[in-house]
Amino acid sequence: MSERLTPQLVERVARLARLKLAPDEVERFTGQLQQVLKYVAQLDAVDSRDVEPLAHPLELTNVLRADEPAPGLSREAALANAPRTDGRYFLVPPILDEK
C-alpha cells in the first residue's frame, strides 16, 4: 500500500466510477486521497496471514424466503421519480451511434 497517487490515476479512477470531475477537483482530491492512502497503509503492518476475510459481521449464507407471488410497484409508482419517461418506460439517450 505505497501507491503514489497522481492526478492521472485520480482521473482514471473517476472514469471508472463514472464521475466527471472539474480540474480543481482532480487537484484537490489527489492531495486528500493521497493523505488517506498514506494513513490506511498502516494496515500493512498488521499480520493477517491465514486470516479469512470477514465481509459481513453475521456471515449468513443462503438466506431464503418462500417464493410467493406478491404485488409489486405499479408502473406509475415505479416511473414517478424518473427524470424522463414516456409514461410507459424509462427514457435514456441513444445507446447506438446513429451517425
Binding site: V10, R18, L19, K20, A22, F29, L33, I95
Partner: peptide, 23 residues
C-alpha cells in the same frame, strides 16, 4: 451520449465527501 450522461449527472449532484469515498 449515455456514459457522459452518467458521469455528468453524478459529477454535478454528488458533494465532495461522497465523491472522495466513491473514488
Amino acid at each position: 451520449g449515455l456514459v457522459d450522461m452518467y458521469s455528468t449527472s453524478r459529477g454535478e449532484a454528488f458533494g465532495d465527501e461522497v465523491k472522495r469515498r466513491i473514488m
